[in-house]
């Protein structure tokens, strides 16, 4: 399963990077979303997989019995998911605003940049 997921992570990265290298600013954003998912999954797998054993402490015990999934990686990813969403939300509205002003999402056609001609 780990090998399978490693390939998935690599594929998601490749798809994200490919989208980010497009001329459309909207695709850039979609690529960013894929990159975020890929990174979260990367951390999750790297922390070690435990099938069906969440980091819960049973009632009456003070610590989990036997091996459980790594709670620290999960906490980090949880934060990353939410922050990533904040970034995407802001970027989406900003991109939409650019589109409204320029009527185009081709990065090369946008005016007002440094290399403006």
């Amino acid at each position: 399963m780990e090998v399978l997921l490693a390939i998935l992570v690599g594929f998601l990265y490749a798809a994200g990077v490919y989208l980010m290298l497009r001329r459309s600013i909207v695709k850039l954003l979609f690529g960013l979303a894929l990159l975020g998912n890929a990174t979260n999954l990367l951390i999750f797998v790297a922390a070690g997989l435990q099938r069906g054993r969440p980091a819960f402490v049973p009632i009456g015990a003070t610590e989990p019995k036997g091996p459980v999934a790594d709670p620290l990686a999960q906490a980090l990813i949880l934060t990353a998911i939410v922050i990533g969403f904040g970034l995407l939300a802001f970027a989406t509205v900003l991109t939409r605003r650019v589109y409204d002003l320029q009527q185009d999402d081709d990065l090369d056609a946008l005016s007002g940049g440094e290399e403006d001609v």
């Binding site: 990077v17 290298l21 797998v45």
Partner: peptide
Amino acid sequence: ALAFGGMMSLLLLGVL
């Protein structure tokens, strides 16, 4: 993209 993705896969396997 494929080079970068491939390296990320290898990175993950290396970490594991």
